[in-house]
Design a protein around this nucleic acid. Structure first.
Lengths: 193, 193
DNA sequence: TTAATTTCAGAATGAACGTTCCAATTTAAT
DNA sequence: ATTAAATTGGAACGTTCATTCTGAAATTAA
């Protein structure tokens, strides 16, 4: 009965992830969104509601994508320690690619918004719990397979891995950090497993 | 010959650190600064120039204070590993205090601004290098004193410690993170030293 | 072809933004 | 006392902000 949308909603959300990831919530203006998403103000507001709603949707989509990515890799892995190494190596490499997105959108949002925005805090905490769980199960399996040292409780190792993941995502937000720094951190991290 | 300032410039800077630390650069308005610093717009702008200049001054002051704090502790320490443990334990405890400042102002600024602001990036990189150096010297001494395992190059351990420090500062920006999570990370970290 | 419905581009909105200005006030040396 | 310089509170500035509105264009079932 009515005119069709000229854009794909998921593609637009991916664009929103990009620009929020790059500039943060407060650093991204409505005009930035219009420009980067390539749609008009009216379409933007009709489709996604206000800026805050759009941000939440973008962050939730990012959470699901990055979680599924990591969970997928670890679940199908036959060499857990090697997979963890590749995961980190990948995150490190990505931070040296020439994209506007550096670091991690979830880490950025945690730092910028979690203490002031209950809705964001919930997404952030859910993410931490899910990531911890997927690392926990992976480490536990790695220990059973004798690929990871059983000297330390897998719960602790899971939290430790997540912490180092956050750490390198912070380092990645500064262009000046040499790759060797990341590699050194990863090397020590792996020596614990 | 002229009227005297009614406020202390360093106290005002400390207040600026607080509010920028809590709300970020883009999240802090000129009105926020006026309210939190307790001085008028004219005094604020006459004394510190514009918002960006004030932010840089605040961040540099924070850098010096936090660096001096950590460097002081490590340099006078007779038990390096124990001092590192106390340092982290202190950072963890502070994140559970009822203050508006959570996490680390330097980490926050890295995440929010480093890729878009060359001046901030310089402060951030200088800080990383200085922190790495102070950790490096401490670890080296700790190894010489047989307080820290010599299995790993002190440079790598320094970078690793800094990375975990950043990580827990991110975790600290989310009120929902249970203390046990921090404690577990610290436990694994110490097991490497 | 018509009618119903939605999207679209861009103008318009009022509020909030960072910054500047101004007149009054305070100080201390003359 | 007068003068010169600096600080002060608060009004005022133009700009940008997020959001809403308007009216034309587009679509498709009837």
């Amino acid at each position: 009965m009515a005119r069709l949308k000229e854009f794909n909603e998921e593609d637009a959300l991916d664009k929103a992830i990009e620009i929020f990831w790059s500039k943060g919530y407060n650093g991204t203006s409505a005009q930035d969104l219009v420009t980067h998403l390539g749609l008009s103000r009216s379409s933007l507001y009709d489709t996604f509601g206000d800026k805050h709603s759009l941000f939440i949707k973008a962050l939730q989509r990012y959470q699901k994508k990055s979680y599924d990515d990591i969970a997928g890799l670890l679940q199908k892995s036959t060499n857990i320690k090697e997979t963890i190494k590749e995961m980190f190596a990948q995150a490190i490499l990505e931070s040296f690619e020439d994209k506007i997105t550096k670091g991690c959108f979830m880490v950025n949002s945690t730092v910028e918004l979690a203490i002031h925005d209950a809705e964001i805090e919930k997404v952030v905490n859910d993410n931490r719990l899910k990531m911890e769980e997927v690392f926990f199960l992976a480490v536990k399996r790695g220990q059973e397979l004798n690929q990871i040292s059983s000297a330390t409780d897998p719960r602790l190792l899971a939290r430790f891995i997540f912490n180092n993941y956050s750490g390198i995502r912070v380092l990645a937000r500064s262009t000046g950090t040499p790759k060797q720094v990341f590699d050194d951190v990863l090397k020590v991290l792996l020596s614990v497993l």
